[in-house]
């Protein structure tokens, strides 16, 4: 696949969101798009997927694509299974093969028990699973994921990671944006840095600046952790150990050891927990 002088603006008097992007995309590569908010990541992803047409330039040699949007707030009245059945047909999977693919992905993502419920009654995470399933049904040669991991439970995140690796192994291309710098970090072949709509391509899975090397651990001291949430704390990705006297008091000080690579994600998660305060972070 090749992007040729691709540019995008949403109207003649609007600013260019993406400009002069010329890149050859090799098959079998995992590409991570990086850049601050509004740098054009989502727009470039949509153009690559073919959901959006560029205002300038063109995309050639695009394989069959699957696209997972950032949010899938479905106002649709289909049930999850009906919607996926329609999507499998539109993706060109007719008959029993389509049905089998729908059931396979509902199962893999842990959404089978909600398959008959109307999409509009589903939770955000469950809708996200449906959005992921529709993109993966046809085993696309190009998979485009816009923050697809957001809102998923742990098991589904692992399943999506696995699905991405399967696509790469099968010679497909996967492009993604995710807020977690550790996401698929060791598999990334190219990183596209977007700055004001222009792209700088870097190869390899180099650790982004500002994160702690993978092999080190970081100690996080917390206050105000309820004993009932200790198992949840232990189950966070990258948490090596949790030290604290479980018997004492309702709220307590806890020392958590985290793998450096996951430190940011763990801290971000902890800041959302009610009553929990981060007192110190030290190497």
């Amino acid at each position: 696949m090749r992007l040729e002088a691709v540019g995008k603006r949403y109207g003649l008097r609007q600013p260019w969101i993406v400009r002069h992007v010329t890149i050859d995309v090799a098959a079998g590569t995992l590409i991570r798009l990086e850049g601050r908010n509004g740098s054009g990541k989502s727009t470039l992803l949509r153009i690559a997927a073919g959901a959006l047409l560029p205002s300038a330039g063109r995309v050639t040699g695009r394989p069959h694509a699957g696209y997972v949007p950032e949010r899938f707030p479905s106002g649709l009245t289909f049930s999850a299974r009906e919607y996926l059945r329609h999507m499998s047909r539109i993706h060109g999977l007719a008959g029993p093969a389509g049905l089998a693919a729908v059931d396979e992905w509902l199962e893999r993502l842990g959404a089978t028990e909600y398959a008959a419920a109307p999409l509009r009654t589903l939770s955000k995470g469950m809708c996200q699973k449906v959005a992921i399933a529709q993109a993966l049904l046809s085993k696309p040669g190009l998979l485009v994921l816009d923050e697809a991991w957001t809102g998923l439970d742990q098991a589904a995140r692992g399943e999506l990671d696995a699905a991405v690796r399967e696509r790469i192994a099968a010679g497909g291309t996967v492009m993604y944006v995710d807020h977690d710098p550790a996401r698929l970090a060791s598999d990334v072949a190219e990183r596209w840095q977007l700055d004001d709509g222009e792209v700088t391509v870097r190869t390899g899975a180099a650790t982004p600046a500002g994160t702690v090397p993978v092999d080190r651990t970081v100690i996080v001291e917390l206050a105000g952790v309820e004993p009932s949430s200790l198992p949840r704390l232990e189950s966070l990705p990258g948490v090596v150990s949790v030290a604290g006297d479980r018997a004492v008091g309702e709220h307590q000080a806890v020392t958590v050891t985290v793998v450096g690579q996951h430190c940011d994600a763990v801290l971000r998660e902890l800041l959302r927990w009610d009553g929990v305060h981060v007192r110190a972070v030290r190497p």
Binding site: R46, A51, E70, Q134, A135
Partner: peptide, 8 residues
Amino acid sequence: AARACIAT
């Protein structure tokens, strides 16, 4: 979002 999926 649903339109974008169909368009893809």
